[in-house]
Write a protein that binds this DNA or RNA. Structure first.
Lengths: 90, 90
DNA sequence: CCGGCCGATACCGAATGGGTATTGGTCGGG
DNA sequence: CCCGACCAATACCCATTCGGTATCGGCCGG
């Protein structure tokens, strides 16, 4: 599992389609589809239901989404905290 | 910033040397050194003090370490929660 | 002053990741 | 009834990243 996969998953969950998320992430659709599948494979459970209209979160996906968001905000906090700390020294 | 870099940073912080962390991570020392440097570059601040005996955490590194551990545990929790959820359905 | 650790660098081959082109499936309108 | 639009999935290729081996430079202890 990579950090990019987590960001990609959140984008797909929020946009509702792989196409929309790809546009938002400035990458193209096929690699995004692959990352979502790789994430599901690694977790051992599907996170989305594929419909002809897009991707709908499954219960397992909702659960993962909450954790995923916490991971991303924790990383932002970490970067901000480090910069604040090193700035306060200099 | 990647998830691997965060794991690598924690290992170096805990082992106190790049060599020791490399052994624990089952990779060799040079790529580990590079990842630590890349992480510091991205954060814009050094995290370790290089000594002839190894790597000592700087204050900024201590701050980052706490957040880094939270990231890793959150990811473990996420994976466990997803597997629990999808198991409870089936 | 030399031997042993340490991290840093140079270089190379393998693996990962993203891009384009295309396919297959499903729905809505003429 | 079928054609066009929109979706995700796949095939294939190329650029980038990542890890490994070999080596260097610095520092301390015997």
């Amino acid at each position: 599992m990579s950090l990019a996969q987590i960001e990609y998953f959140v984008a797909v969950a929020e946009e509702g389609t792989v196409h929309g998320a790809a546009r938002r992430l400035h990458i193209s659709q096929p690699p995004l589809t692959r990352h979502v599948r790789a994430l599901e494979d690694e977790l051992g459970a599907p996170l989305f239901e594929r419909t002809p209209r897009g991707m709908r979160l499954l219960p397992a996906g909702e659960v993962f989404l909450a954790h995923a968001r916490r991971v991303l905000t924790t990383i932002d906090d970490a970067a901000a905290a480090v910069r604040r700390q090193s700035a306060s020294v200099s």
